[in-house]
């Protein structure tokens, strides 16, 4: 086994662990952490793939760089929504079932 294979398998491990964590946990921060690390897992896979030939492939590197920037944008927005949700209703969890909203004032 070459070291590249270690990293490929490692990325699969991170991916499934975080997928499980994402579904199992209810806390918003925990879910965002899991999503972020899942992204890192995919990036690790791409980096490993880039390393297997004679030449190091710059295309996956560019993809990962793009992906990192997208990931930080998504994380920042998700955290902002989480905080706004907390400001609005004082909890950092999603309700299990979305309650049918029966309040009167809709659409402004």
């Amino acid at each position: 086994m070459s070291p590249v294979t270690f990293y490929l398998l490692s990325s699969v491990g991170i991916f499934v662990v975080c997928l499980y964590g994402l579904i199992v946990h209810a806390h918003l921060i925990r879910k965002i952490l899991a999503l972020n690390m899942m992204g890192s897992a995919v990036f690790l896979l791409l980096t490993g793939v880039a390393r297997r030939g004679e030449l190091t492939d710059p295309v996956p590197h560019a993809m990962v760089l793009t992906g990192i920037v997208v990931a930080v944008s998504a994380t920042a927005f998700a955290l902002a929504v989480a905080r706004r949700l907390y400001e609005e209703c004082g909890r950092a969890y999603l309700p299990e079932e979305d309650p049918e909203d029966l309040s009167e004032e809709r659409e402004g």
């Binding site: 070291p3 590249v4 990293y7 490692s10 921060i29 965002i32 952490l33 972020n36 890192s40 990036f43 690790l44 980096t47 490993g48 880039a50 390393r51 190091t56 590197h61 990962v64 760089l65 990192i68 920037v69 990931a71 930080v72 994380t75 920042a76 955290l79 989480a82 905080r83």
Partner: peptide, 29 residues
Amino acid sequence: SWARLDAPDIALAEAAIGAGLTGALFLNT
């Protein structure tokens, strides 16, 4: 591990953005 995989560009970016800034964002939240 990216530095090990000959990817210094993204190792740099990950250390600064992925771990540093994102981590700080999380801490802050």
